[in-house]
């Protein structure tokens, strides 16, 4: 059985670090792991998606519609954009932060504020959290990624210490404490 996780958000929100930490932990647990991301053009404030897949043997590096067990969304609108990738019975973990895309900024479109409620009425399981506040409490708005990762981590039977170990091995030394704090706050939200 392969487990499929999509990490979605806006370029610059730090999804690369989240997928890196997740990949490291899953590899150390002995799984076959594939992580797929697109660099380049999409980094510049565009919509970004990262696929993380793990299991005994993983072939495709990407996830397609109806396949994701979890969608970890760093931004509200992005959760809705990628909702079709969720499989039946899957779960969306979403940061309630709203970042206006350019069509909204220039007044060509409205930010669809009730889009999560709409998905809920269709039976989609959603956990919405204010990761930005938790990140600020940890010391940096940039730690939204680790707060959210911690929410996802709670879903797996992987010891807490493994995640902390991955943070210590991956993050630059001066940011380790802040990220550990963010993980703790996210985990205990």
């Amino acid at each position: 059985m392969t487990t499929n996780i999509m990490i979605v958000g806006v370029g610059g929100q730090g999804s690369l670090l989240a997928s890196k930490l997740l990949g490291a932990v899953l590899l150390s647990e002995g799984y076959d792991v594939k992580v797929s991301e697109v660099h380049g053009m999409s980094q510049r404030g565009g919509s970004v998606e990262t696929y993380v897949r793990f299991g005994e043997k993983v072939y495709s590096p990407i996830i397609t519609e109806g396949e994701a067990d979890y969608i970890l969304s760093f931004e509200k609108l992005e959760a809705a954009r990628w909702a079709a990738y969720l499989k039946q019975g899957g779960e969306i973990i979403v940061n309630t932060q709203e970042i206006d895309p350019m069509p909204v900024i220039i007044g060509k479109a409205e930010y669809p504020t009730s889009i999560l409620e709409e998905l809920k009425t269709k039976g989609v399981k959603i956990e919405a959290i204010d990761a930005l506040s938790a990140a600020e409490k940890a010391g940096s708005v940039k730690a939204v990624n680790v707060v959210l990762l911690a929410r996802l981590a709670k879903r797996f039977a992987i010891p807490y210490g493994k995640w902390i170990e991955a943070i210590e091995n991956t993050v630059a030394p001066k940011f380790v404490e802040m990220n550990k704090k963010a993980f703790e706050l996210g985990y205990n939200l």
């Binding site: 404030g45 919509s47 990738y85 969720l86 269709k122």
Partner: peptide, 28 residues
């Protein structure tokens, strides 16, 4: 995998779509 499944007429995986269209978020 979806392209290949579709070409061989294998069953689609059910999914849920929001009715509200999410505005595009192009790079900038």
């Amino acid at each position: 995998q979806q392209t290949i499944s579709a070409a061989f007429n294998l069953p689609e995986k059910p999914s849920v779509k929001a009715d509200t269209v999410a505005p595009a978020r192009p790079p900038m």
